[in-house]
Design a protein around this nucleic acid. Structure first.
Length: 919
RNA sequence: GCGGAUGUGGCGUAAUUGGUAGCCGCGCUAGACUUAGGAUCUAGUGGUGUAAGCCGUGGGGGUUCGAGUCCCCCCAUCCGCACCA
C-alpha cells in the first residue's frame, strides 16, 4: 500500500543493465565531462563502508552533468594487485587471481545494489594482462627516457647517447644520480656494459643499490608513504633499513613541475599543502669544501650560505662513501663501530629516539673556503643519506640540531647573525644582520647569502641551487601478486623485452612465498628466462597499476595502444576526481608524475590528470556502550551510570536504535548476557556512544548492504549525503536515516492517492507552486555546482513539505522535480518518470530550466541606522533603484520624526540591498 | 617543534558569503487517530523569564551602523610532516 522500494529498485537496476543506459561513447558534437572515483582494492571483507560516500557524491554529480547536456564518462574498475590477496594465498595456497575474482564479484554486487551510473563496459582491472601490458609498456618508456633539465621534459635516451658521442659528459643537462665526467672519446672507448651502467645514471627508470625500507615480515621493500612510524602501513610490521638493488623511478626529476602544477588545480588547500611539504622545495647553495690531505671534496647543501663564517664542524651521514677514506688511523675503530651501529638500526629505533645526540669524529678536517679555517669532520645519524649530498656544514649558533650536537660534544658555537641570544638555544631567524663574518658583516641575511653564492661560483666551488625532499620512488617489490617487469639480465645488466612481446605474463608458481635463499617468489617459476637470460624476479608496486588507470578508461579495449589519440583528445583528463585524502603523498603524486611523463612523450594531451579533486571525509565508526555494574550482571542505563561503579562494554550497534538498546536482542547476543538485568531510565536502556575507528572488535561496523535491504538504495544514498559536508570526517551514524526514509515515501505519496493509485493533475500550477519548484531548482543547481549535497537534500525536503502542505499534485511541478531528484534517488525517480508517461530513462531528461521570474521577491527589509545604531527596518520594493529608496527615506516624515526631530543628513548605500541613514 | 584545518542547541548540521543566528533532519514534549505503536498526522522545542525583555555561535580584545562570518591574542580538538641542513 506504500512505496515498495524493494520491487522498484530491483526492476530498474535490471532495466538499466539490459538497456546499457550508462554506456558512454565519444560524441564530438557534445562537451565531455569525466567523473572518476578512486577505484577500490577488492578486499575479502567486501565493500568498505567508507567507499559509498565518495561514490554516491560522484554519481550524483555525474548524473547532474549528464542532465545538463554533457557527455559524461563515469567508469569504475579495480585496483586488483595487492598484498592481502597474496598473504591469503601464502596461507591457503589459493591463487590470488581466484580470490581476487571472487572479491571483485562481491564488490560488483554491492555496487549494483546502490544504483550507480557506472559505465561497466569500460571496467579495468590492474591484474588483467590486457591492462598491465600498458603498465609494462610505460615502464619501458621510462627506461628509455631521461629528464632534460634545460628543455624541462623527458627526452629519449638516444638523444643523450648522441650527446655523449659528440661531447662526452660536458654540457649535459640531465637529472642524474651522480655527477659523472668523461669525454666523447672516453665514452666511445667504453664497453657496452660500461656504457649501460653510465646510462642508468640518467634513465627515468633505473636500477641501483639503494637504502630501502625493508619489511622482513612482509618479505618486501616499501615506499616511504607505505611506512608510518617505522611500521608498515599494511600489517603494521617493523621496517628495517637495508642496502638492496632496486628498480627506481626518477620522480625527483619532476619535483619542480609537480610543485608548480599544483597552483592551477582545484584541489583543497590542505591537500595541496601536504603535497608541497612532501615535495619540500628549499633554495640554497651547493658548496664544495676541500678536505685536508685528500683529493676528494666534501660537498654540502645549505639553505644558509650567509652563515658560512659560523661553521665550526662538518657532519656526514653514516652511509657517506667518504667516511672510509678520510678517517684517521686513531679514529678508524670508533668510526667503524659507530657507522655499523647506526646503519643497523631499524627505522623504529631511529624514530623512537628522535633528537638523541650521537656521533663520532673522523679525525679529518675540511677547510673553510673563505678563511682557510680547519673544520673537524664528524659522522652522525642526524644527517640523512637521502637528502642533499648526505653531508652538511654545521652552524651551531643558528641551527638547533647543530646546536644540540655542539653542546653534546663541546664544539665551538660562534654567533654570526646579530639579534639573538645563543647561550641557551640556536638563533634561527633569517631576519638578522651578519656579524663576525669578514666581508659580509653588516649585510642582511638575504643579501649576504646571495653574495656568498656569487663568490663560490666565481671560485668554482659551488652554485646556488634548489633541493627537494621528494625522493625517487623505489619500484621493486619482492612479491608475487603484481606486474612482472619486462626485464631480463645479460651480464648482470638489465635489458627491456621488445614491446611487441608484451605483455610479460605473470608465471604460475607452486608456492607464493619467497625462496629459501630469500629471492622473490617469481624465482620459483620454471623457465623464468628470456632467450636463456634470467628475468627480473621482483614485481611492480601497488602504485604502478593505479598511476595511469584513468587514461585507460578512455579506451579500455584497445590492444594496439595504451589508448587512442582520438579518445584522449576527446576525454582529455579527469574533470572531477573523488577519493580519500590518505593518497595525498602516494597515488596522487605518482599519478601526476606518470601523467606528466606521458604528456612529455606526446601520449597524454593534458599535463595534469585530475583538474578538480574532492576528498570525501574519512568515515569513522560510532560505537555504542552498555555499562556493567562491576562484579554483577546488571547493566545501568547511560544517564544513571554515575551512581554506580561501572565498566563500559562495547555493544553491537545493530542491537541499538537511536541509542536505545534492544534488551531482548542483547540477552540473545552473547551467552554471558543471557541473564542480564537492566537498570532503566524512563523504561529504556540508553547506551553511551563514542566516535572511534571502525572495527570488528568494537562492534561498530555498518554494512551498506543491510541498510539497502532495510531502507532501500535511494534512502541510503540521500542519507549519506545528508550526513554533512562531503569533505568532512564524520562518524557513520544511522540515527536519523528514518527522516530521509520518510521523505522518500512522502515524495511518492505526492503522486499517489490514498489507495496508492498513481494520480497527478494536469491543472496549471499556481504562482506559489511554481515558486516552490523554481526555488528548489535554483537551490539544487547551486548546491550541486558547489558539491554541497547535504544542503541540496535539505532543499528537497523543504520542497516536498511545502508541496505536501499545498496538496499539490500538478504534473508541471512534479515532473521537473522528479528530474531534479533523479541524481540523488535514481530508482524512485525512474519509476515515477515512467508513471508520468515517459519511455526513456530519466537520466537523459533535461535538467529543468530555472526561471527567475517566479522567485522575484516584491520587497526587502532595509536596516536603517541613526547615531551609530541600527534602529529599525523598512520595507522597500526590490524594483526600486537606490536613488528612489534614498528619496523615499528622506521624504518619509515618520522616519525622520523617529530621530528626536533631527533631520537625516545623509543616506549611505552599502553594497547589496543595504541602506543606512547616518546623521 | 613546523604546517593545515575545525570549534554554532541534547545530536548531525544551515545561514543568500558582512545584514532578523539556529534552515533541514534526528531526538525530545504534548495532542489526534489507533487493539497496539518503534506507523501516520498536528503543535512545540537555544538559554532565562509569567511576560515585555534580556543573554547567546570555544574564550578575550578590535574594525563596523551592523560580526557565526573580517583582523589580533589565547584555549581545545582533528589531520599531515617530523632530525629535510
Amino acid at each position: 500500500m506504500d512505496y515498495n522500494f524493494v520491487e522498484v529498485e530491483k526492476k530498474w537496476q535490471q532495466w538499466w543493465k539490459d538497456t546499457k543506459i550508462y554506456q558512454s561513447q565519444i560524441k564530438n558534437d557534445k562537451p565531455k565531462f569525466y567523473v572518476l572515483d578512486m577505484f577500490p582494492y577488492p578486499s575479502g571483507a567486501g565493500l568498505h563502508v567508507g567507499h559509498p560516500l565518495g561514490y554516491i557524491a560522484s554519481d550524483i554529480y555525474a548524473r547532474y552533468k549528464r542532465q545538463k547536456g554533457f557527455n559524461v564518462l563515469h567508469p569504475m574498475g579495480y585496483d586488483a594487485f595487492g598484498l592481502p590477496a597474496e598473504q591469503y594465498a601464502i596461507q591457503t595456497g589459493q591463487h590470488p587471481a581466484v580470490t581476487t575474482a571472487r572479491n571483485v564479484k562481491r564488490y560488483r554486487e554491492q555496487l549494483d545494489k546502490i544504483g550507480f551510473a557506472f559505465d561497466w563496459d569500460k571496467e579495468v582491472r590492474t591484474c588483467d594482462p590486457a591492462y598491465y601490458k600498458w603498465t609494462q609498456w610505460t615502464f619501458i618508456q621510462l627506461f628509455n627516457h631521461y629528464y632534460d633539465t634545460k628543455e624541462d621534459k623527458a627526452l629519449p635516451i638516444s638523444n643523450l647517447i648522441r650527446h655523449f658521442e659528440e661531447n662526452g659528459s660536458a654540457d649535459v643537462h640531465a637529472s642524474q644520480s651522480d655527477e659523472l665526467h668523461f669525454t666523447a672519446s672516453e665514452w666511445k672507448n667504453k664497453s657496452e656494459e660500461e656504457q649501460q651502467i653510465i646510462l642508468l645514471n640518467y634513465r627515468l627508470a633505473y636500477i641501483a643499490d639503494t637504502w630501502v625500507n625493508w619489511c622482513p615480515k612482509l618479505g618486501t621493500v616499501l615506499a616511504n608513504d607505505e611506512v608510518v612510524n617505522g611500521l608498515s602501513v599494511r600489517g603494521g610490521f617493523p621496517v628495517e633499513r637495508k642496502l638492496m638493488k632496486q628498480w627506481i623511478l626518477r620522480v625527483s626529476a619532476y619535483a619542480e613541475r609537480l610543485l608548480r602544477g599544483l597552483e592551477a588545480l582545484a584541489w583543497s588547500d590542505s591537500l595541496k599543502e601536504i603535497q608541497r611539504n612532501w615535495i619540500g622545495r628549499s633554495e640554497g647553495a651547493f658548496i664544495r669544501f676541500k678536505i685536508n690531505g685528500f683529493e676528494e671534496t666534501l660537498d654540502i647543501f645549505t639553505t644558509r650560505p650567509d652563515t658560512i663564517f659560523g661553521v665550526s664542524f662538518m657532519v656526514l651521514c653514516p652511509e657517506h662513501p667518504l667516511i672510509g677514506k678520510i678517517s684517521t688511523k686513531e679514529q678508524e675503530k670508533a668510526v667503524n663501530e659507530y657507522v655499523t651501529w647506526a646503519r643497523n638500526r631499524s627505522e623504529t629505533e631511529r624514530q623512537s629516539e628522535v633528537r638523541k645526540v650521537s656521533g663520532v669524529f673522523t679525525g679529518a678536517y675540511a677547510v673553510n673556503p673563505f678563511n682557510g679555517e680547519q673544520i673537524p669532520i664528524w659522522v652522525s645519524e642526524y644527517v640523512l643519506a637521502g637528502y642533499g649530498t648526505g653531508g652538511i656544514m654545521a652552524v651551531p649558533a643558528h641551527d638547533s640540531r647543530d646546536y644540540a650536537f655542539a653542546k653534546h660534544f663541546n664544539l665551538p658555537i660562534r654567533q654570526v647573525i646579530d639579534g639573538g641570544d645563543i647561550s641557551e638555544a640556536a638563533f634561527e631567524s633569517k631576519d638578522g644582520t651578519c656579524i663576525n663574518s669578514e666581508f659580509i658583516s653588516g649585510m642582511k641575511v638575504k643579501e649576504a647569502g646571495k653574495l656568498i653564492i656569487e663568490k663560490v661560483k666565481d671560485m668554482g666551488i659551488g652554485y646556488g641551487t634548489v633541493n627537494y625532499r621528494l625522493r625517487d620512488a623505489i619500484f621493486s617489490r619482492q612479491r608475487y601478486w603484481g606486474e612482472p617487469f619486462p626485464v631480463y639480465y645479460k651480464n648482470g645488466l638489465p635489458y627491456m623485452i621488445p614491446e611487441s612481446e608484451l605483455p610479460v605474463l605473470l608465471p604460475e608458481i607452486d608456492q607464493y612465498k619467497p625462496t629459501e635463499t630469500g629471492e622473490p617468489p617469481l624465482a620459483r617459476a620454471a623457465n623464468w628466462t628470456y632467450n636463456g637470460y634470467p628475468m627480473e624476479a621482483s614485481t611492480m608496486p601497488g602504485f604502478a597499476g593505479s598511476s595511469g588507470y584513468y587514461l585507460r578508461y578512455m579506451d579500455p579495449h584497445n590492444d594496439k595502444e595504451y589508448f587512442s589519440k582520438e579518445a584522449n583528445q576527446y576525454w582529455q583528463n579527469v574533470d572531477l576526481y573523488v577519493g580519500g585524502a590518505e593518497h595525498a603523498t602516494g597515488h596522487l603524486i605518482y599519478s601526476r608524475f606518470w601523467n606528466k611523463f606521458l604528456f612529455d612523450i606526446g601520449l597524454a594531451c593534458k599535463e595534469e590528470p585530475f583538474e578538480k579533486l574532492i576528498n570525501q571525509g574519512m568515515i569513522q565508526g560510532r560505537s555504542n556502550f552498555v555499562y556493567r555494574v562491576v562484579g554483577t550482571n546488571k547493566f545501568v542505563s547511560f544517564g544513571l551510570k554515575d551512581n554506580y561503579e561501572v565498566m563500559p562494554i562495547h555493544v553491537d550497534v545493530n542491537l541499538v536504535k537511536n541509542d536505545i538498546l534492544d534488551t531482548d536482542a542483547f540477552k540473545n547476543w552473547q551467552p554471558d548476557f543471557a541473564n542480564a538485568e537492566f537498570i532503566l531510565e524512563d523504561d529504556k536502556y540508553v547506551c553511551g556512544w563514542e566516535v572511534e575507528k571502525m572495527s570488528k572488535s568494537k562492534y561498530n561496523v555498518q554494512n551498506p548492504d543491510d541498510l539497502v535491504e532495510k531502507y532501500g538504495a535511494d534512502t541510503l544514498r540521500m542519507y549519506e549525503m545528508f550526513l554533512g559536508p562531503i569533505e568532512l570526517a564524520k562518524p557513520w551514524d544511522t540515527n536519523g536515516i528514518e527522516g530521509v526514509f520518510r521523505f522518500i515515501r512522502k515524495f511518492w505519496r505526492l503522486f499517489h492517492d490514498n489507495d496508492n493509485n498513481f494520480n497527478v493533475s494536469d491543472d496549471e500550477p499556481t504562482k506559489d507552486e511554481y515558486k516552490i519548484l523554481h526555488r528548489t531548482i535554483k537551490k539544487v543547481e547551486d548546491d550541486n555546482e558547489r558539491f554541497s549535497f547535504n544542503t541540496a537534500v535539505s532543499g528537497f525536503m523543504i520542497c516536498v513539505n511545502e508541496l505536501n502542505d499545498a496538496k499539490c499534485n500538478k504534473r508541471q511541478i512534479l515532473e521537473p522535480l522528479t528530474v531534479l531528484l533523479s541524481a540523488y534517488a535514481p530508482h524512485i525517480a525512474e519509476e515515477l518518470w515512467h508513471l508520468l508517461g515517459h519511455d526513456s530513462s530519466v537520466v537523459d531528461a533535461q535538467f529543468p530550466q530555472f526561471d527567475e521570474s517566479f522567485l522575484k521577491e516584491s520587497s526587502y527589509l532595509y536596516p536603517i541606522s541613526f547615531n551609530g545604531k541600527t534602529r529599525f527596518q523598512r520595507e522597500f520594493s526590490l524594483e526600486m533603484s537606490v536613488k528612489d529608496i534614498e528619496t523615499a527615506i528622506l521624504a518619509d516624515e515618520d522616519t525622520l520624526k523617529w530621530m528626536d526631530g533631527k533631520p537625516a543628513k545623509k543616506v549611505i548605500i552599502v553594497p547589496k540591498k543595504i541602506v543606512n541613514i547616518v546623521i
